[in-house]
């Protein structure tokens, strides 16, 4: 009995969280498609999510591409398979590393910022003020962020893919002695439409997850500064776990035979 009670409590609280999150997500989605719309707020959030994340995503992508080329070379050289490096780089970056690493970086930067901003608005009664001013916070705060996340992450991942492949090119050509033209030709030959599309679909899903988690945890934060701190941590942790989980699910959908 003493063992079953905490287990039962844990299971119940898990389903409670899933239920709350599902209701929050469905409400947020429904407000994305119902007027009034706030194009200026959406644009502002797109700049916040996309433009200001470019440096961190770009740096992550270029070093990932460089390391990928270097590691692949040290492994493939044993089997005289160095020529497969462009293939490995383009497939790894477009299918997995571009969207996942960009998603995790944006979760840390944007998800945390959203949770902190909305959480502060919650504990300082600014969200209550929105209600009393006859403005639905889901329309004014949540929907613009979710729309911006879903639209911007794919663009950000396209940029990350390009920079990541360029990182692989830099190491392969300038350090490992590959012929530039051959490397580029192989990269283009090995690039598949489905690989890029699957990465972009993942990016859109990750954009939704990041913004939803940031907004959800911020919206439900309570208890002052400590509550906002917890909301920020929870937003980043839950978004990161969900990104990795949905990465597997989307990979299954696209590539399982």
């Amino acid at each position: 009995m003493p063992l079953l009670q905490p287990l039962g409590r844990l299971i119940l609280s898990f389903f409670e969280i899933v239920g709350r999150l599902s209701i929050f997500a469905s409400t947020a989605i429904s407000h994305c498609f119902r007027p009034p719309f706030y194009p200026k707020l959406i644009l502002k959030q797109m700049i916040e999510v996309g433009y200001y994340s470019l440096p961190v995503v770009g740096l992550t992508a270029i070093f990932t591409g460089m390391v990928l080329a270097l590691q692949s070379y040290t492994g493939f050289a044993r089997f005289s398979a160095e020529s497969a490096i462009p293939n490995v780089v383009i497939v790894s970056i477009t299918r997995e590393l571009g969207p996942v690493l960009a998603g995790l970086m944006v979760a840390g930067r944007v998800g945390a910022a959203m949770a902190a901003e909305i959480g502060t608005m919650r504990v300082t009664e600014q969200i209550d003020a929105l209600y009393t001013l006859a403005t639905n916070p889901f329309k004014y705060l949540i929907a613009p962020r979710v729309i911006a996340g879903v639209l911007t992450l794919p663009i950000l991942v396209l940029v990350a893919d390009t920079i990541g492949v360029f990182g692989g090119y830099l190491v392969s050509v300038h350090k490992l002695g590959f012929n530039p033209a051959t490397y580029l030709k192989n990269t283009i030959d090995f690039m598949e439409y489905l690989d890029v599309v699957s990465g972009l679909v993942k990016a859109a899903a990750f954009g939704f997850i990041i913004t939803l988690m940031g907004c959800y945890h911020g919206f439900h934060s309570k208890g002052g500064a400590q509550g906002v701190g917890s909301a920020t941590t929870n937003a980043v942790v839950s978004a990161s776990i969900l990104i990795l989980t949905f990465n597997y699910i989307i990979t299954e959908l696209f590539f399982s035979r």
Partner: peptide
Amino acid sequence: MESVRRKFGMLFQYAALFD
């Protein structure tokens, strides 16, 4: 409810101004 709230004005304890 929003149409009811349009008839309201509210001053919060700490003003709750939008930062």
